[in-house]
Amino acid sequence: MEISEYNKPSFLDGVKACVPTILGYLGIGFAMGVVGKGIGLSVFQIFLMSLIVYAGSAQFIICGMLAIQAPISSIIVTVFFINLRHFLMSLSVAPYFQKETLLENIGIGSLLTDESYGVLTTYTRQNRPISVPWMNGLNLLAYAVWVVSTVLGGIFGRFISSPESLGLDFALVAMFLGLFLFQMEAELKRGVKKTITVLVSVCFSLYVLMIWTTPEFAVIGATLIGATIGVLMNDE
């Protein structure tokens, strides 16, 4: 869908689109800071980890592996496979920005997360306009909130012995459920049969693959299977 320069969403529009993810980031980011402080990391080390790694699940894994004094090489390999799904997400996002410069695409891909990807796909499913400034607003606010929330967790973490008692461990799950429901609403309007078929195929393949391989590869494999089935059904 061609969008005129006048109608292109702005950076501020992207910031506003990020608001639903902020509460999830605050909760899980704060919990991440608490965990990091608990294994002996300084606030500055927590800050650097969030600034450079910027991956919630990977950062929790890093903290767990540091706690058991795992080799650095093992940590690097583990984090690589955990974040391999971002390759698939970037591939699916690339067509929307194929007319943009390489530098702009690198900027978008570098800060793309599960949450910003969820917001982006929700907008595209609803045929709402997107742009590079909009995507930058979405990504940069999420990035800033994540870094700040983990630092706050590191600073105040010593006062909270059990983050799950405040429901912080469920914040990210609740946010994903909200994004999922928005996407499901748009998909069901397009075709109930296709949506259900893809969901069932993903769930079944994920269950089977989890038996034979690691969770990271199972997620990637199930995603590829679901995407392939969706493409084939579009061609029918």
Rank of each mutant, 00 (worst) to 15 (best):
A144G: 04
C63R: 00
E216S: 01
C203G: 05
S161I: 08
G137Q: 06
M233D: 06
T228H: 00
S110Q: 12
L177N: 10
Y25H: 09
L209A: 08
P71V: 02
P95A: 05
S50I: 07
V219A: 13
A67S: 11
R125K: 10
L23A: 11
T214W: 08
I46M: 14
M135H: 12
S92L: 07
F97R: 02
V198G: 03
L12R: 14
F30T: 02
V148G: 02
K194Y: 15
I3Y: 09
F180D: 09
L91R: 08
A171H: 03
P133K: 01
L84Q: 05
P163L: 07
V119L: 11
R158L: 05
I82D: 04
G40K: 06
L140V: 11
I220H: 12
A186Q: 11
A55M: 03
Y123V: 01
S4E: 05
F30P: 04
L138K: 13
L232I: 14
S42H: 13
R158K: 10
Y6K: 14
E164F: 09
E100R: 12
M1G: 10
I22M: 15
L12F: 15
F44A: 14
F30L: 09
S161F: 11
S205L: 04
Y96K: 00
P215A: 03
M210E: 08
L172D: 02
K193R: 15
G107R: 09
K193Q: 11
A58E: 03
A17F: 12
G38S: 11
L188M: 14
F180V: 09
T124Y: 14
I28L: 04
Y96V: 00
I196H: 10
E236I: 12
I229R: 00
I52V: 07
L179C: 05
A227S: 04
F170D: 01
V151E: 00
I46N: 08
V192S: 09
I130Q: 02
V35N: 05
T228C: 13
Q45I: 02
A17V: 09
I68A: 02
Q126M: 05
T214A: 09
G226E: 06
P20C: 04
V132H: 07
S10C: 06
V200P: 01
A17W: 14
S74H: 02
S110C: 08
M65E: 05
S57Q: 07
L51A: 10
Y6M: 04
I196R: 13
T101A: 11
M175R: 09
G153Q: 04
V231S: 14
I68V: 11
A94T: 15
K99I: 01
A70G: 02
E164S: 14
F81L: 09
A186F: 14
E2M: 10
L138P: 08
I61N: 07
Q98L: 07
M65F: 09
S162L: 06
A186K: 10
V77Q: 04
E164R: 03
V198C: 03
S149F: 06
M89H: 07
V147H: 04
L166E: 05
L102Y: 11
V53F: 12
S74W: 05
L199A: 12
